[in-house]
């Protein structure tokens, strides 16, 4: 183990460890960042929701977008799995279906960054009955 030899050392160490706590730090102020909910029902997982979630996590890191990824249950659009719900602060939630890597790229580059709608929207403002 390396010893901390200066304040700069310590700060570098902080940078290095910080990503380990990222999930926790983000959860405290979710409302301020892009929330991406991935439907992880049996149908979603079978259609590759796990892989797409991993792909999107890397994509967000690469584009330096602060995003929090939450697994949810089946959203009911089993015909259009993998399904994801994207909530950008200040905008209404949007649900996208049949998401693959290419679609994910589009969602990030067009919708999240430029608020440009992309194809594949299932529902806007997916209201929840039990509210």
């Amino acid at each position: 183990m390396t010893k901390v030899k200066s304040l700069a050392d310590l700060k570098a160490m902080r940078e290095q460890f910080q990503s380990n706590l990222d999930v926790r730090e983000k959860s405290n102020n979710q409302e301020e960042m892009v929330q991406i909910k991935v439907a992880m029902g049996t149908c979603g997982i079978a259609s590759g929701a796990k892989q797409i979630m991993e792909y999107m996590m890397e994509k967000a890191d690469g584009m330096k977008i602060r995003a929090v990824f939450i697994q949810t249950g089946c959203m009911g659009h089993c015909n259009a799995e993998p399904t994801i719900e994207v909530i950008v602060p200040g905008r209404e939630p949007v649900v996208f279906g049949l998401v693959n890597n290419k679609k994910a790229d589009e969602i990030f580059e067009k919708y999240i960054v430029n608020n440009e709608m992309v194809d594949g929207v299932i529902a806007i403002n997916n209201e929840v009955a039990d509210k």
Binding site: V4, S6, L7, L10, K11, R14, F17, Q18, N20, L21
Partner: peptide
């Protein structure tokens, strides 16, 4: 209730010991 108290890395990633560093160097 946020970090693992038995892991100094988690403390450091929350800015632990930076105040000490600031005192000692600045």
């Amino acid at each position: 209730g946020f970090i693992d108290p038995e892991n100094i890395e988690e403390s450091i990633s929350r800015g632990g010991y930076e105040a000490l560093g600031k005192c000692l160097t600045e």
